[in-house]
C-alpha cells in the first residue's frame, strides 16, 4: 500500500525529469540515452508497485515494440531529410529551418528525442520479457 502510494506520487516526477534530461542535453549534461534510461526506470517502478498485468494494460506489447523501432527511424529519417535538403547524411544545418544554426539545433534536438524513445522502449521491452514470463 505504502509502495503504491509513493510510486503513484513519484512516477510523474521521474518521467518529467526524464523528459527534462532529454530536452536539456544541448545545454547541460544529459541527452537521449540518459533520459530514456530514466524514463524506463519509472515504468519498472510501476511494474514493481502495481504488477506486470496492470503495466501491460497501460503499455501494450505492440506499443513498446512499435516505439523501439520508431526512435531509431526518427534518427535515420532526420538523416535522410538532410540529404533531401541538399546536404550530406546527418548534416543538420542544411535543413530548411531558418538559420543554419537553428536548423542544426532542431536537428540535434530531433535525434535526441529519437534516441530517448528507442532506449526507453527497448529497456522496457527487455524488462518485460525477462521478468514477465510466468510459465516454465
Amino acid at each position: 500500500m505504502i509502495v503504491r502510494v509513493i510510486a503513484r506520487i513519484l512516477i510523474p516526477f521521474i518521467q518529467l525529469y526524464a523528459l527534462y534530461v532529454i530536452a536539456h542535453g544541448e545545454i547541460g549534461p544529459g541527452g537521449g540515452f540518459q533520459g530514456g534510461v530514466i524514463f524506463s526506470a519509472s515504468i519498472i517502478l510501476y511494474v514493481i508497485a502495481f504488477g506486470m498485468e496492470e503495466a501491460r494494460s497501460r503499455i501494450s506489447q505492440k506499443m513498446s515494440d512499435l516505439l523501439s523501432s520508431t526512435g531509431a527511424l526518427v534518427f535515420a529519417i532526420i538523416g535522410l531529410l538532410c540529404i533531401l535538403a541538399g546536404g550530406s547524411y546527418l548534416e543538420y544545418d542544411q535543413l530548411p529551418l531558418g538559420t543554419p544554426k537553428l536548423a542544426s539545433q532542431l536537428g540535434i534536438y530531433g535525434i535526441e528525442i529519437g534516441i530517448g524513445i528507442t532506449v526507453a522502449a527497448v529497456l522496457i521491452t527487455i524488462f518485460f520479457e525477462t521478468a514477465g514470463r510466468k510459465d516454465d
Binding site: 544541448e26 545545454i27 541527452g31 542544426s104 539545433q105
Partner: peptide, 16 residues
Amino acid sequence: YEETGVVNFVTAVLAS
C-alpha cells in the same frame, strides 16, 4: 557552438 549551435559540446560531438 558556431558549427552546431549546441552549448554542451559533449552533445555536439555525439550528435553532430
